[in-house]
Nucleic acid binder design. Structure first.
Lengths: 195, 195
DNA sequence: CGTCTATTTGAATGTACTCAAAAGCGGTGG
DNA sequence: CCACCGCTTTTGAGTACATTCAAATAGACG
């Protein structure tokens, strides 16, 4: 369970074996049943979270009660309400499992200690966040410049392995269209691919 | 010129005076005339960049030649094509001055040295990037859940000081609408505020 | 097999876009 | 100081893309 976490960190920064031990010790695992909430709006978000197995979604609910999915997370992904975590304010986002999942999480206080014990962790999260920023920026560009059909095609190409685990109406929410419209897009696409 | 940079860093992490000197030494200034490009698609992006004065825009151009503004930057903002900077690949974004501006920039190699000389710089950019990520995520949520009118209202409330320096068609581009449509929105809003 | 949830269909509506043209505004040179 | 030029903003008509709402169909699971 911890191998995948350590592998994830070592992909970006070097770690001594003693540091690995410190890290494994600091992260606690948590099992989630299908559709269980890990975080809800208003909760404090005191942990940095790593998906070691399963499938999660991060979403917000707007004033009209509409759900908007910001991110999916499968094995190897970091997910959080980063704003709530960093500011210690109540969460604005929800995090829920789509399938039975295993999380590895570290408390903020323990992480801050760890930053001093293992300075490479500062670097790790800097790089990780930078990569996350870049990915989010790319998504922003695509949502501004591409049609829903293009965005859907890109999604299934990029996250082929995720697609199976995720119901279509959630993909619609992630792409920013209604489930009805995504259905229409799929119909149009399959008609085209036949001709 | 450097005071604003140091102030910006010290807002987030502590710095010894000797470190301040190292940092000032590492950042070189660059003056930009109005509408001058700091970075164009295809260029290498080898610097971390801080706007010490003026006004800049970061944008991408899509396959149809349409410009999409990702970010504005005025005094005190960090701007970059982070993807190109981190991966050393050619830039996908453009960075251009809207008004005459002064940048402070540090080369990637020098920054990597600095991370070892001044470990707090790792932390600084971690926090800075985390904040940037949070801001971008908020923008993503708003673009999914709010009308163009709401987004415009928020923009002028939040960036009142920027608004003056930025032509309306660029704000439209940032908001993801056409200039014609933004004009219509403004007309509707002023009609409402009269009644 | 029945129930609950997810997906598909179709019609009516709405929001934003395209295109073309007019009006406004700022700076420059005569 | 005014006339002209280029760029920005406004206007309006017609169109495209996506939404809402309601209902039918399909799938999953006990």
């Amino acid at each position: 369970m911890y191998e995948i976490l350590i592998k994830n960190i070592r992909e970006l920064v070097p770690l001594a074996d003693s540091e690995v031990e410190l890290i494994c010790d600091a992260f606690k695992s948590r099992l989630l049943k299908k559709k269980e909430h890990l975080l809800q709006k208003g909760d404090p978000s005191n942990h940095m979270r790593f998906v070691s197995d399963g499938c999660m979604k991060v979403y917000s609910i707007d004033d009209d009660g509409q759900e908007h999915i910001l991110q999916f997370g499968i094995s190897g992904w970091w997910i959080n309400d980063l704003y709530a975590f960093l500011t210690k304010k109540p969460a604005t986002l929800f995090i829920q499992s789509i399938a039975e999942s295993t999380m590895l999480q570290i408390h903020r206080d323990r992480l801050n200690q760890l930053y001093d014990e293992v300075p490479m962790m500062d670097r790790f999260f800097r790089i990780k966040t930078q990569n996350g920023y870049v990915a989010l920026q790319e998504r922003t560009i695509h949502s501004m410049s591409q049609s829903a059909e293009q965005r859907y095609t890109q999604f299934i190409n990029r996250y082929r392995h995720m697609e199976q685990q995720i119901p279509q109406y959630m993909i619609a929410s992630y792409l920013g269209v209604t489930p009805e419209h995504l259905s229409a897009i799929r119909k149009k696409m399959s008609a085209q691919s036949l001709s």
